[in-house]
Design a protein around this nucleic acid. Sequence first.
DNA 1: GTAAGCCTTGACGCCGACGTCAAGGCAATC
DNA 2: GATTGCCTTGACGTCGGCGTCAAGGCTTAC
Lengths: 142, 142
Amino acid sequence: MRIGELAARAGTTTRTLRYYESRGLLPAKRNGNGYRVYDEDDLKLLRQIRTLQDFGFDLEETRPFVECLRAGHPEGDTCPASLAVYRRKLDELDALIGELQAVRAQVGAQLVRAQRARDELAVEALAPGGPEPQCELGGILR
Amino acid sequence: MRIGELAARAGTTTRTLRYYESRGLLPAKRNGNGYRVYDEDDLKLLRQIRTLQDFGFDLEETRPFVECLRAGHPEGDTCPASLAVYRRKLDELDALIGELQAVRAQVGAQLVRAQRARDELAVEALAPGGPEPQCELGGILR
DNA sequence: GTAAGCCTTGACGCCGACGTCAAGGCAATC
DNA sequence: GATTGCCTTGACGTCGGCGTCAAGGCTTAC
């Protein structure tokens, strides 16, 4: 099959396939008139790449999987190098998720603090002079 | 103070300050010879920007905070527009964290699956012919 | 023969937040 | 007056993964 069909079958674009080839990730044979020609195995490689890309893997990180498949293994992720990428990615994800959760907590706390500061200013505007520390201010003031 | 001192006091670079100015975020007065001149309030604005940037806010998202400070409020995050940015960012963070956790789960499952596939192939290589479904294979085969 | 629909290579554009280099001006010090 | 160390503007580079356009070639259908 030619580049357009492969792209369509994998749900991507010809530009993407040419880009992968330029990176040495998905080289293609050529027919008489210079057109790229692909087979079913290439589709399998491409699907492996796309799946990992959807997971957020860098293109370079997909290379071990592709090479594993090209080496004849029925699946791209059973080779040691692929497993190593999985593990490294898990570590990265854990680290990133942890950082994001920390940021979320900080931003959440800032939001609460800023809202409380607003409420206090509003109360002061209503009853100027001093604070009236009762309770449930948030509920009353909306 | 001039640009170099402000940058140093905020732990950033002069290039960054000029970039902020080019974005209209942190305009500077000029002295006689054309040098940028800043005061303590500018340092406060800059620190607000940097804090939010460290949280992963886009530069544009810091603008309401800066304008809030410049409007005379003692803190940049008590204005409605700033609170709205906080809330939007919390939603974004929650969505992103959720996606990453889903990816993490998928990748983790793939790792387990791929490792099991390897182990089974290893067992077959040791005892060719048929499967020997005992237990603790992972432990024995390392 | 010509229009349509594939394909080719090459090259520039995009996004964000700056880094880095170039060429030159101003001020203080030796 | 010459060096040093600030400062100025302008402009190109970076990173990844492509999008998009240009100019042209091949094949098939009408």
